[in-house]
């Protein structure tokens, strides 16, 4: 059974390209359009990895992460944060989250797959 990845980004094109690259690589991908929507996906299903943008309407990626960590089923789920060049220098409070993996936009789908593969194999 292929592993499930939740991708949270308000950009439809990012979601689309990421999803197709990851699906080609053998992962099962589910989507959310922002943090709020992402939390809805944490409904008990097994999620092996979360990929989330930082800046989003409704709920940003950092708040989402903090919320996710409160839920036992997702507290140890690895998270890759998508960031832009401009917020590469992360504010201190980001370190309070367990986001250790950062991927800088723009990235090629292959880079995304490589980053994911380091954390979980399909």
């Amino acid at each position: 059974m292929s592993k499930t990845i939740l991708i949270i980004d308000d950009s439809a094109s990012i979601r689309q390209s990421t999803q197709s690259a990851l699906q080609d690589a053998g992962y099962h991908v589910i989507e959310a359009i922002d943090g709020q929507d992402g939390l809805k996906q944490l409904n008990g299903q097994k999620i092996h990895l979360i990929i989330s943008a930082v800046n989003m309407p409704q709920m940003d990626g950092i708040t989402f992460m903090q919320e996710a960590k409160k839920r036992p089923l997702y507290q140890f789920t690895p998270v890759i944060m998508l960031t832009t060049e401009s917020n590469q220098n992360l504010p201190p409070h980001y370190s309070s989250t367990n986001a250790k993996a950062w991927l800088t936009k723009p990235f090629r789908p292959a880079q995304m797959v490589a980053a994911v593969t380091k954390l979980i194999m399909p």
Binding site: L49, Q75, F76, T77, P78, V79, N98, K100, A101, T117, K118, L119, I120, M121
Partner: peptide, 18 residues
């Protein structure tokens, strides 16, 4: 802390095989 951060050492080693 890596386990709690969702980072599995074995996953990285698995990646090495690529």
């Amino acid at each position: 802390h890596c386990l709690r951060d969702g980072m599995d050492p074995l996953a990285f080693i698995r990646y090495l095989t690529t």
